[in-house]
């Protein structure tokens, strides 16, 4: 039980920190760190760097992007659940 409590506490702490920073309203936008890195590249090159190729396909909207991200998480979660369910069930049989 100790492990579960520790893991839960770590996740809660991260969430509390997030709420604290969000509550301070320092103008945080909660964008992706890679987007910010693109800003750093702009700063370093004086805005002259243009990506020399763009993605073949981009999700047409934020909704579709989050759909595909959820799908990725779901595929992983199904396999994890199957693995532990199968072997736990076999042990108790």
């Amino acid at each position: 039980m100790k492990g579960e409590i520790l893991a839960g506490a770590a996740v809660l702490l991260l969430f509390a920190l997030f709420l604290y920073v969000a509550g301070m309203d320092g103008g945080a936008e909660w964008g992706g760190a890679d987007g910010e890195a693109e800003g750093v590249i702009d700063g370093l090159t004086g805005g002259t760097y243009e990506p020399w190729i763009s993605p073949i396909w981009e999700p047409p909207s934020g909704e579709i992007e989050s759909l595909l991200f959820s799908l990725q998480a779901a595929i992983g979660a199904i396999i994890i659940g199957y693995f532990f369910g199968y072997y736990r069930g076999r042990r108790s049989a």
Partner: peptide, 18 residues
């Protein structure tokens, strides 16, 4: 599968970005 799940979770961090 563990990599699939964890790398799909964009989490907010203390720096105000995810």
């Amino acid at each position: 599968a563990f990599i699939f799940v964890l790398s799909s979770l964009k989490l907010p961090s203390v720096t105000g970005s995810c």
